[in-house]
Each structure stands twice: as C-alpha cells, then as structure tokens.
Design a binder for these strands. Sequence first.
DNA 1: TCTAAAACATGATAATTGTCAGTTTTTAAC
DNA 2: GTTAAAAACTGACAATTATCATGTTTTAGA
Lengths: 229, 229
Amino acid sequence: MENRCENCIIRQFNSLRALNKDELKKVSDSKISKKIKKGDTLFIEGQKLDGVFCVRDGVSKLSKLSSNGKEQIVKLTNKGEIMGQRSVIAEDFTNLSATAINDMEVCFIPKEVISNTLNTNPYFSLEVLRHMAHDLKEADDVIVNMSQKTVKQRLAEAFIYLRKNYGEDEDGFLSLTLSRDDYANIVGAATESLIRMISEFKKKGFIKTEGKKIGVLKEDTLQELADGF
Amino acid sequence: MENRCENCIIRQFNSLRALNKDELKKVSDSKISKKIKKGDTLFIEGQKLDGVFCVRDGVSKLSKLSSNGKEQIVKLTNKGEIMGQRSVIAEDFTNLSATAINDMEVCFIPKEVISNTLNTNPYFSLEVLRHMAHDLKEADDVIVNMSQKTVKQRLAEAFIYLRKNYGEDEDGFLSLTLSRDDYANIVGAATESLIRMISEFKKKGFIKTEGKKIGVLKEDTLQELADGF
DNA sequence: TCTAAAACATGATAATTGTCAGTTTTTAAC
DNA sequence: GTTAAAAACTGACAATTATCATGTTTTAGA
C-alpha cells in the first residue's frame, strides 16, 4: 500500500484537496488503482457508474456517439482531473464514454465515499461545484465555436489548445499525439476533410508533420486564423 | 412585502428548496423583485454579477457573442430556473448574456446570501450541484448536435424542444414565439438559411405559420428528420 | 395614421464541407 | 520478416450552408 492518497500530489489539482484527514483516509482505503492501456475504455455512455476516476497519469477523451454513428469528442481530460462525477452526483447514467488516448494510471473511488463526503463536507461540495462550473463554461465556449466557426478555425484552435495544455517535445512536436480520426472528432468534421486541412496547413507552413506527430510552427498565424482573419 | 420567498411555489423547482426556514428568511429579506421588459437585458457577458436571478415568470435567452460578431444562444431558461449561479460560484465574470424573450418577473438574490448558504448547508450545495450537472449534460448534447447534425435536423429538434418545454396555445401554435433571428441563433445558422428552411418545412406540411407564430403539425416526421431519416 | 426601421422573405451565386472511391503508408500480430 | 488490417491520404463530385442583393411585410413610434 505504498500509494496512499495522503501522499498523492495529484489531489492538489482537484476537488479532493478539500477533504480532511479522516475523509482522505476513507477515500484512500477504498480506492482501487488501475492501469488503463492506450485505446482501452474506462466507461461507456449509458452505463451506471459506481464511482469516479481520479487521473494520476495519461490523457483520455470523453466522447458521445451521435445518432448518425459518428463520435464527437466533448473534452480531453488531463492529469489531476476527476471523471464521472457528473454521473455520480446526478445519480444518472453517464452521458459520455471515456477512452484512454495514451497509457493511463487512474484511481477508482467508490461512489458511496464521494456522496457521503458531499453530504457532510460543504467545502468539498463547493470545490466540486467550482470544477463543474468551470467545465460548464468551457462547454459553452465549445458550443459557440462549433456553431459559429469554420472547421479550419476550429482546427487552428485545437492545435493551439493542445500545445498550451499538453506541451510539446524537444523537437517541437505536440506531446499529445492524436489520430487524424480523433482530430476529426474533436473539431466535428469528416476525417477526409480534416486530413485535407492538415495537408493545407502543412503546405502553408503553419505546422509540420512526421507520421502522426504534428508540430506547431506559426502559433500567431494559427491564432489569427482561429479568430477569423 | 406580500411576496415572500416562503410562500413562493417557484422555489420548489430549483435549488432553493434545500434551504431551511432561517436561510429562506435571509434570502427573502435581501431579495429584490424586478420586472424585465421583453427585449431588455438582465446581464451582459463579461460583467461581474453581484447575485443570481430566480425566474418567477417569463423566458430568457442565454447567449454569447462569437468573434465573428454573431450571437449564439446557448440555452433558454424557464420559470423556476436560477440564472447566474455559475458566475457567482466561480467568482468569475459571466460568460453569457441574458436577454428577456418575453416580459419577465425575476428576483435578484445578492451573492453573499448565496455563498454563505453554500458554505454552511451541504444540501443546498448538493442541490445546486445537481442542477449544474444537469446543465452540463444538456450542454454536452448541444455540442454533439451542433457538430454532427445538419441545420435542418437541428431546426426540427428545436421545434420539438419548444413544444415539449413551453407548450402550445389553443390554436396549436408554440407558446414561446421567437424571432427568425433567434431561431437562427439557436440552431447556429445564417438567418436567411433558417428562413428558407422554415418555408420548406411549411411547404412540406411539417409546420404552420402565422406571422411570427409557428405551429408543429407533424411532430413524428420532425422527430424522424432530427434523427436522420 | 403615417412613416421609418426592423423583420421577413426569396433568388442567384459562392464557399464550405461531406461522400464515395480508390491508393499508399503504417502498424501490429503471427 | 511477412502479411493482413488499420490509418493516412488524394481526387472527383455532390450536398449543405453562407453571402449578397433586393423586395416585401410588419411593427413601433411620432
């Protein structure tokens, strides 16, 4: 049992930091550490979740299947985030599927522990509330982008977002490597359209590619493009 | 002071129902009733809100300006809903503007009362959390619709939504009358495109119109259309 | 009631994006 | 290492949607 929540720095980045010692002990005693392989799924939309997942390492995509059978990625999660809280709080089925984009390390925390703490520790509720408020704001922004911007603008924005949030390696390629399909499902476009746009960006010198890897060359130009110039 | 929160049925539909007598008294003593005329604005995106609005009557649109200058309506609020909580909780500027679609009656509740209660009454926090969880789920659905469905599908869906949530009058017209511009800003399309589609739906007998008013004639057909047939 | 402004409407055309069909490259399993 | 499957890519074409131009109707205020 070397991995105790008490010693886990990750929790400083999420709502679990509002827990007191006793509560933290309960969480730690009941949590189950899991390793998720790239491509594996944490949960599928429509499932009932028995708990939440705290991401120690790796990135996952939260997506939803449209009635036309296409996947839409609603959000990418990063280290420190908690997944599945919406479903546990609303005592509802998940509306999203979670799939690992690279190898992940997560802790599963049973819902009883979470809901007990929500009922007794208002600071914890408030922390969860703040995080959800943040998610809601981001979701609103996505709605506006989806409806008012072109695919090209959304793609430019995606590259900037990925660089900002996940960084790049020593050769200037985005640290988070996504498939073309994933890109298409983030910006909400046909895969072929998206590939064409990547080619275009590359030809124009905005980005560089090497296999799946993509590197941002002209962030300013991409930003202008995203803003509509 | 005839209008006391203690006697207001509206609060049964929102998170205020989790308040105890004392808390409710505080809310009631500090609240300010306001009448908002159709077309007037409750708040504008980027403002700092000093409180939340509890909707007693009327409908408002929550919208956001895109960088291209077009408005996107993110959500319509109805009787009983509380507006501005996200901003108050996150101690953040509003990301949305709120505009009255018809004449409204709202109560303004100062943020201090709200945040005090959030800090002390976990049931209230939990209720707010549930409502926000619901909003977040709805936002996810909107994202998927925006990116995966055609304008025609989204319009069909909008008519069904409006009938279901706001009802219709004795002549079969939607109770909530929106301008063509508002419709365009809900489904995320150019106003001209939208008007054309309304004409098409009318020609095909799916809906009827009389001036601004629109009535759903074939809900099943619209539903099939929205689902992609 | 008159009048200007706003909202509604339609046509022509252009831009954006999707679909289908096929080729090449990469990946992963045996 | 070979090979089958998956992913990446390209072209041709079609469908969707936006834009611009213009006319008509409705609405609200003097």
